[in-house]
Design a protein around this nucleic acid. Structure first.
Lengths: 360, 360
DNA sequence: GAAGCCCTTGACACCGGTTTCCACTCCCTT
DNA sequence: AAGGGAGTGGAAACCGGTGTCAAGGGCTTC
């Protein structure tokens, strides 16, 4: 009798209310249906914004929902939908600040949507990598996944996702997929801006430290830089381009290598801030003052760019904004408009580490 | 007919197999039961390691499970258990490296357990903070949550969790709760080690920059430091203790304040690495060389400690290890042993920023 | 005035597990 | 041989939602 399924507005309603109020049981769709005097299916329709509910009924049910603070159980809903309300972030980017900013951005985009973020760092070189990713997605029946670099650049992953029919957004420096699966970061434009900046300061003999070749951004950054120089009629001497690894240590080593060259470059553009910090240290060891003797610039505008001396001129990447747009795109929120692509474009931040070259 | 529930080893088995193999349908508990010729309840018993299954039956079922790569659906299981297989990390720690290391540690401890990590940054000063946390936990029916500082220090949160009966682990520098809910970080011991280090180098006039008073660790670090000095017969002059905010900028400001004092301190112990980096910059502006003119040390051993010049002597906190232990404790994994508390104790890392004071 | 259609609504099965309850073996007593 | 208790397995209900399909009411249409 207690679990009578027919709407019974008088009988055990007080009974149920008591159970709800006193016991700390949360309201279920059945409670709402009973309290509103409709079937659970109708409540379900309201929850899912079905248009086939009379306005009057909808208002009444919504009132009951609001009154009892009802929220549908994501597990039950997911079970019936054959899909969870979880978004996965699969990443192997080693930079904590990038990772955290991206997480914050994704959460920004998911706020109030009922989705939650499940983080999944990974190792692309592991032999079980693809299998792990597949298990992660299939077991949890993820609604979708976001792939920041460099996982985003792995076609095996994209193929897998298409294969198992999981929604995904790739965040990369260049388009790699159809538009609905991409957020493009335009590292190239950022590097161009930096090239223009250095040229405008009057530098002509510029050293460049590339990032890991396994990261697409490395090539984009170098390419954009070369573009800008070429446009200004300055040539990037291949001899002044060295291979870094996006780490502080590699920046130090590459910086030392570049500073050992004759003639010495008047400026060094490192592929990211950490390497630029390494170059600063190399400059210091070499007895050079930045920016008087040497201009050093980075890319990313992470915290380290402001924590070193002198603070680095760098390219700011709006990671959090990118993340927000990625999440919104993925869950295609109501009222979602494609978002302003301009907001994802990196831009120059001028600080104290760059200056015109010394007059000779 | 297709969904006959009686074990029917011959009839439509091939039928079902086909559906499983050809269609990309994953195996369910019903499939396993049919294939093994038992009821789903028995399979359930095997999954949940019930002792009331004959060895022979268990082996047979496990073979079928392995053969088909069956894994129970966390959503369905969660629905029946009234509890999800999600662990929440609720945090407001502003340091990306701490956050990422903690996440990695938690994931280490959860690996292979079937649990997943859901991240939930928060703002403790928000008026809806507690309500948000409650909604997050109740809606997702979280299995448990991990609370790093400073959320871990908020008694309102702990009360809430006890109230709604959610498992939790607090990670804090001092015990705040019963043992089963705590992982203690012993910041005090770390600060003591640093105090001993500075004293052993011969410093006696030492400046100290505290962290935010709202962080328990700030007081622990200061307390541990004072303990060590006291034990060595050195007094910490309150005039040489200034209030920082755990940020680079505050370190810069506090460093300048300390360096303006007469007589100048011969060493400055900053409550974390970022502030120490700020002090380095203040020293540089004051024309001082580190460590010759001034010893500067930090706490945390984050990346920045190695990226500045000179690299910072600091206290390493095994955050990832702490996270791993927290997760293991939370899910009380099979074969879980309390873990070696010694592994969570911070220790001194000596780099180039500390040296004996200049002979006067 | 009956047929046809649209709009609303509800009954019922189902998603993939667990729990409750009961029946049926064994096996050992008496 | 009857009686019991532990060990083992199954049927059915349940967790809290959604999909399918059919039915009721009001309206138009011929």
């Amino acid at each position: 009798m207690t679990s009578s399924k027919t709407p019974n507005k008088s009988a055990d309603e007080s009974d149920v209310n008591a159970a709800l109020e006193s016991g700390r049981r949360r309201a279920t769709i059945n409670d709402i249906a009973r309290l509103a005097g409709v079937s659970k299916k109708t409540v379900s329709r309201v929850i899912n914004q079905s248009p086939f509910v009379r306005e009057e009924t909808r208002v009444r049910i919504e009132a009951v929902i609001a009154e009892w603070g009802y929220a549908p159980d994501p597990q039950a809903r997911g079970l019936a939908f054959r899909r969870s309300f979880l978004i996965g972030m699969i990443y192997d980017n080693p930079n904590p600040q990038y990772v955290v900013n991206m997480q914050l951005g994704l959460l920004d985009g998911m706020r109030g949507s009922g989705f939650e973020l499940v983080v999944h760092p990974c190792d692309r070189s592991s032999p079980t990598f693809l299998q792990d990713v597949r298990m992660f997605i299939e077991r949890q029946k993820l609604f979708g996944v976001v792939l920041p670099p460099s996982v985003s650049e792995d076609e095996r992953v994209a193929d897998l996702l298409r294969d198992i029919g999981c929604e995904y957004i790739r965040i990369a420096s260049v388009p790699l997929d159809e538009e609905e699966h991409m957020i493009v970061g335009h590292d190239r434009l950022g590097a161009q801006a930096m090239g223009e900046h250095l040229v405008s300061l009057g530098h002509e003999r510029i050293g460049f430290i590339t990032g890991l070749p396994s990261f697409r951004s490395s090539h984009e950054r170098r390419g954009g830089f070369e573009d800008a120089l070429a446009k200004a009629g300055v040539k990037l001497d291949p001899d002044y381009v060295v291979q870094g690894a996006y780490t502080f240590e590699s920046g130090l080593a590459c910086g030392e290598a570049l500073l050992a060259k004759t003639p010495r470059p008047t400026a060094i553009f490192a592929g990211n801030d950490e390497m630029a910090a390494g170059v600063l240290q190399a400059a210091r060891r070499a007895g050079l003052t930045v920016p008087e003797d040497l201009t050093v610039v980075g890319f990313d505008d992470f915290q380290i760019a402001q924590a070193v001396w002198p603070p680095l001129t760098t390219i700011h990447i709006p990671t959090r904004e990118v993340g927000r747009m990625a999440a919104e795109k993925l869950i295609a929120r109501e009222g979602y408009e494609p978002g302003d692509p301009a907001k994802t474009i990196p831009y120059l931040v001028t600080r104290e580490s760059s200056a015109p070259p010394k007059k000779v």
